[in-house]
């Protein structure tokens, strides 16, 4: 029996750097394998300890269950600790993730749109070309529709 397939984890943005290197006189001595910190583990650490959210809120943001989130978080801490203690490089890569893009709303035609090219900033509405666009705060604009459908 093959194990169950992992669900996709949502990561808001890739980390700024690809990893971390130890320094000091003994740093290069053990040229060992780096510790591989998965993107989802990086995201778990960011949500929990940088944005100060609790595990439940963070699990919702990543689209996994709370127990799964706790496991990802524990694994992140374990790997970082191993890197620190053993003086290993930490490389941030891999993992079963997708990157959630930002959503915007146009003031002119009231449409919503996302930005699939994260590096480039969107200046105009893709539909009507209006320059008055604002970031859309909710998770996805779709949630709202679902609520209205239920209300009817």
């Amino acid at each position: 029996m093959s194990p169950r397939i992992k669900t996709l984890r949502k990561v808001q943005n890739p980390s700024l750097v690809k990893g971390f290197k130890p320094y000091g006189p003994d740093a290069g001595k053990q040229n060992s394998e780096p510790v591989i910190l998965l993107y989802e583990e990086y995201e778990a650490l960011r949500l929990c300890d940088y944005e100060m959210r609790n595990h439940h809120q963070a699990s919702v943001l990543m689209g996994v269950s709370r127990p799964t989130f706790t496991r990802i978080y524990a694994s992140a801490l374990q790997k970082i600790a191993a890197g620190f203690v053993e003086g290993k490089r930490i490389s941030i890569e891999g993992g079963k993730v997708y990157f959630d893009s930002d959503w915007y709303q146009c003031a002119g035609c009231k449409c919503y749109f996302n930005n699939p090219e994260k590096e480039k900033e969107i200046m105009n509405c893709p539909l009507c070309g209006n320059q008055q666009i604002a970031p859309f705060k909710s998770e996805t604009p779709m949630d709202e529709t679902m609520v209205t459908i239920k209300a009817e």
């Binding site: 449409c111 930005n115 996805t140």
Partner: peptide, 21 residues
């Protein structure tokens, strides 16, 4: 409206989604 399953697929294909309500 775009469903929850296809949103990540379109995101990774770099296809822009425009929602008109």
């Amino acid at each position: 409206r775009f469903g929850v399953k296809i949103e990540p697929i379109l995101d990774s294909l770099k296809i822009q989604m425009i929602v008109i309500k």
